[in-house]
């Protein structure tokens, strides 16, 4: 198992009150497997991903009966040990390249920096590695992009550069948190296809986090649907059209569709019973 998480809980305390944002999430991912985590804003999907990298704010309280990455217990890792895993063995692609790339460094410098953080080699080797990585993410003119600053490239190009940076240390797992939400639909599909191909070629595992259920279903093997910190269901992506949970059905149903005009869109009826924790 590449990722094995049992009963993950993330809580925040303040003013004497305790709020559990993630309540009992179970995830498992085999090598080369692709898992989608889908949910609305506030469902805890990003928190779950960040907990895996231990990138949560210090006031967050994480607990889990098991939280392992490739046999390594993440709960007991120190920050120093985490730094080797984070970036090195787990890559993390964030939503908006505008904010996640350093605006005052060229793209080449940033990729080379991430390569040198996890490999040993000269500056020249790092630069060559960066060029090679930009080629791998299908940038047409990699030599030019290498010396460009993030504001000089388009959003899709920036996201490709971001992916190149994450691939530099050759990770085993790629976590992509809404990697395409800030991009146009046509670029969205391109980036996801690229991620898909790279994951395939490099035998990586992929965790794709998104609010877009149909989109995720095209690129993942399994989809885990979250609502208010709880997992509603986990379902094979191919069976999504037959999903039975009313929340999943509701999410699929309430989107306007080009090929089926409707006078009014069905509105999701939320049921408090979905959030009840069934005692084991």
């Amino acid at each position: 198992m590449l990722v094995d998480i049992q009963d993950l809980r993330i809580a925040f305390e303040g003013n004497g009150k305790r709020f559990e944002a993630v309540r009992g999430v179970n995830l498992s991912l085999a090598p080369r497997e692709k898992l989608g985590i889908v949910g609305e804003s506030g469902s805890g999907k990003s928190l779950t991903a960040r907990a895996m990298m231990k990138l949560l704010p210090p006031q967050a309280i994480i607990s889990a009966t098991r939280m392992q990455f490739d046999g390594v217990d993440l709960l007991t890792r120190s920050e120093r040990q985490m730094r080797r895993i984070r970036g090195g063995r787990m890559g993390f692609v964030l939503q908006d390249p505008k904010y996640s790339l350093n605006p005052v460094k060229t793209i080449g410098t940033q990729i080379a920096e991430s390569w040198r953080a996890h490999n040993t080699g000269s500056r020249k080797m790092a630069r060559e590695a960066a060029l090679d990585l930009l080629e791998q993410v299908m940038i047409r003119n990699p030599a030019k992009v290498l010396d460009a600053y993030p504001h000089e490239v388009s959003g899709g190009m920036g996201q490709r550069a971001m992916i190149a940076m994450m691939l530099a240390p050759d990770p085993d797992l790629l976590i992509a948190d809404e990697p395409t939400s800030a991009l146009d639909a046509s670029v969205q599909a391109e980036i996801l296809r690229l991620i898909d191909a790279l994951v395939e070629r490099r035998n990586m595992g992929l965790i794709l986090i998104s609010h877009d259920l149909p989109l995720v279903s095209h690129f993942c093997d399994r989809v885990s649907v979250m609502y208010m910190g709880r997992q509603m269901e986990e379902i094979a992506a191919a069976d999504l059209a037959q999903a039975r949970h009313p929340y999943t059905r509701g999410l699929l149903n309430c989107m306007p569709a080009l090929n089926q005009p409707r006078e009014t869109l069905p509105v999701l009826a939320r049921d408090a019973a979905w959030l009840e924790e069934t005692p084991l």
């Binding site: 639909a185 046509s186 599909a189 996801l192 149909p214 191919a238 080009l258």
Partner: peptide, 18 residues
């Protein structure tokens, strides 16, 4: 036509992506 094809391919859950 491109936009329409893309929109259709993204709104279906069972068909593979373009």
């Amino acid at each position: 036509r491109d936009l329409a094809a893309l929109s259709l391919s993204l709104e279906t859950v069972d068909a593979p992506a373009v």
